[in-house]
């Protein structure tokens, strides 16, 4: 087997749009869970809404910035719809309602009735809405090789998308860093520990939780835009497994840390590509066909998640001392 090309694949995936999108989604989930203790099981719903919002408004002819803002607006509205009724209830309800709501978005998106708008279960093809983003690139078109990776400058899975994507990730990290050390972040952490105590100190817990849900959801939506710009908007590719992967990424990197989600996402995709590549290369195809290797990769993801919780619940960047304390 060809290790050099496998390692190139790993590098390409670990720095690619998928890793970027999941990093953004995990940063959002970090605000929900790591900072506020909200169990959002519907991050994929925010991503899907972001992707739809961006794609549909671009197809409708709106400029890039407006489409981006509409995508964010969709996430804000979705967060409010979810949060207003459920954030007053116990935590489990939020988990169930968010996962249900994300599925509702997906069911509606793929329903035959909305074929004209969302493309039904086929989704929206990238070529229908990528032009405004690709057109905004200051770089000349063409194939550009940097190190072992050779990509189009502007089209689809491009250098341009990576530049913008990592820029967004950096911005998100900066925002989280600033918020973490602010009094606002302090209230969120207090809510994570014990919301009744925070309420007793005169903070309107409900408002803070709502703000947290909205902000984290917006990062999810931005992640959704990135993933849709790399390929297409496909409702079934933004289902429950995406949320589960995002959780794995967050816990792998370390919740309540600034760079945990980013590191988690890079490692997650690198490891997945590496493991799949090794299995493809080392296991003869008549024993395991390539279609079976993909789900096997996810079997490993699931096991990793279990082992993480059991053996290193604080993740790679988390503070063991902090987690050792059982509130």
């Amino acid at each position: 087997m060809d290790f050099a090309s496998l390692l190139t694949d790993v590098l390409r995936e670990a720095t690619g749009p998928t890793a970027i999108a999941y990093a953004l989604a995990a940063i959002g989930l970090n605000i929900h869970f790591g900072l506020t203790g909200l169990i959002n099981m519907g991050q994929a719903g925010f991503m899907l809404l972001g992707a739809y919002g961006f794609a549909i408004s671009t197809i409708a002819g709106l400029p890039l910035v407006v489409a981006f803002l509409i995508a964010i607006g969709c996430a804000v509205v979705f967060a409010l719809i979810l949060g207003l009724p459920t954030l007053k209830l116990r935590g489990d309800y939020l988990a169930i309602v968010t996962i249900a709501a994300a599925e509702i978005i997906r069911f509606i998106g793929r329903s035959v009735g909305l074929n004209d708008l969302t493309g039904g279960s086929q989704g929206l093809l990238g070529n229908q809405f990528k032009y405004s983003f690709e057109g905004a690139s200051p770089f000349a078109d063409g194939l550009v090789a940097i190190g072992p990776i050779s990509l189009q400058m502007n089209a689809s899975n491009s250098w341009w998308l990576r530049i913008v994507g990592w820029g967004l990730v950096a911005l998100a990290c900066l925002i989280v860093f600033l918020l973490l050390r602010s009094p606002w972040g302090r209230v969120l952490k207090g809510i994570r520990e014990d919301e009744d105590a925070v309420r007793a100190l005169g903070k309107n817990v409900y408002t803070f939780k709502l703000q947290s849900l909205v902000l984290g959801g917006v990062f999810g939506a931005v992640g959704g835009i990135v993933i849709s710009l790399a390929s297409s908007v496909q409702p079934d590719s933004l289902g429950r497994p995406v949320t589960f992967n995002t959780w794995t990424i967050l816990l792998l990197g370390g919740a309540a840390t600034v760079f945990g989600p980013v590191l988690g996402s890079i490692l997650f995709w690198a490891a997945l590509v590496l493991v799949r590549g090794l299995m493809r290369g080392l296991i003869p195809p008549d024993v395991l066909s390539s279609t079976e290797i993909e789900p096997l990769g996810f079997v490993l993801v699931g096991i990793t998640l279990v082992l993480l919780i059991v053996f290193r619940p604080q993740g790679i960047l988390g503070d063991k001392k902090e987690l050792a304390i059982n509130g």
Partner: peptide, 14 residues
Amino acid sequence: LIVTIGLALSMINL
């Protein structure tokens, strides 16, 4: 709960 998510992911793919 997150452990059950990991299990769910593993089981369905298995």
